[in-house]
Each structure stands twice: as C-alpha cells, then as structure tokens.
Amino acid sequence: MKTTKRLEEALLKLYNAYHNNRLNPEDCAACAVGNILDNHDSWKHLSNEHGSLELNYVGRVHQNLERKFNGYSPLEILKIEKVFLEACGFKTPLCHYNPKPINPTSKDNLFNGLSAVVDLLCQLDNIDNIMDYSKLFEHENGEPVYHLETFLA
C-alpha cells in the first residue's frame, strides 16, 4: 500500500507516543496533534477553543497562506484534534463544564482516540484505513478471500 510522507511520519510519531506513554489528550504538546507536530503546542493558537473546528484570525491567516505544519493545514490539524478528543471520550469544544472521561490516559481511551485519528489521516490522504482488518474475515463459498501468511520458526 502506498502512503504519503506526512502519513508515514504522523503514524510513526503516534505509534511511538502511544507505546512510550507520551500521549495525553489533556496536554497540547502530548496529544495527537502535539505529537504529530514534534511535541510543540503552538498549534493551539489556531483556534480560540480547544477541540473546535473554527479557526481564529491567526488560524485563518495561516490557512489562507496555505501554511502547512508537518504537512497538515490548520483546518486539518483542528479536525485531527477534535476526532482524537471525542474518540477519547471528551465533549468538544473543551470547557470546564463539559464531561470528560474518568481516566483520559487509559490505554483503552488512547487506543480509541488513535484509531479514530488513523482513520481520519488515511481519509485526508485518500488511502484505505490501514487499521481496517475487516478484509481478513471476508469469505466466498465458505473459504477466506484473503489469506494470512504465518511465519513459524
């Protein structure tokens, strides 16, 4: 499967963050977008509300100038963060009275968030979701359509 450079780099950063316990939806430098953007939190100035899809003045300027941040436009960045937060169990935009998950950094919450982000990243690059394993269960006349190769030593 062919992927884009930005997708490969984002997936690598998210994979490492997840497995090294450096993914935190409540930290702008350690959330999905924070990790994609090399653990910088300056992206948070693109919107006035965390988890919103509405660009503020700064965000609109960058968007209109077609500025990219590690390959992603300001609007794409906001979409990635919104999807991540909502899949982790937050109600967006974030504010003190909106509900949030009991344990936002549980591996289950983070996995749900990452799965949703990977799906969105693939959509943004017009690539089939790399985490979609449904093809493994397709069958025809009782036989699997696709076969897995096993590597037994």
Rank of each mutant, 00 (worst) to 15 (best):
R22V: 13
R22Q: 10
L23W: 02
L23A: 11
L23M: 10
N24T: 10
N24Y: 15
P25H: 12
E26P: 06
D27V: 13
C28H: 11
A29E: 02
A30C: 12
A30F: 05
A30E: 11
C31D: 01
A32G: 10
A32D: 03
G34L: 00
N35Y: 10
N35P: 02
I36N: 00
I36A: 01
I36S: 00
I36C: 00
L37I: 10
L37T: 00
L37K: 00
L37Q: 00
D38C: 11
D38N: 06
N39H: 04
N39Q: 09
N39K: 06
N39Y: 11
H40I: 08
H40E: 03
D41L: 07
D41A: 15
S42I: 13
W43E: 03
W43V: 09
K44A: 12
H45G: 04
H45L: 13
H45I: 09
L46S: 01
L46I: 02
L46D: 01
E49G: 10
G51N: 14
G51Q: 03
S52H: 12
S52Y: 11
L53P: 09
L53M: 09
E54M: 12
E54F: 06
L55V: 05
L55M: 08
L55A: 10
L55G: 01
L55F: 07
N56R: 09
N56L: 04
N56C: 06
Y57T: 14
Y57G: 12
V58Q: 04
G59Q: 07
G59N: 03
G59S: 08
R60A: 04
R60G: 04
V61T: 09
V61S: 02
V61H: 06
H62R: 09
Q63H: 08
Q63S: 13
N64G: 05
L65K: 07
L65F: 08
R67D: 03
R67P: 10
R67W: 05
K68H: 11
K68V: 05
F69W: 15
G71K: 07
Y72W: 10
Y72K: 06
Y72L: 14
Y72I: 03
Y72Q: 08
Y72N: 01
S73L: 08
S73D: 05
P74W: 00
P74A: 12
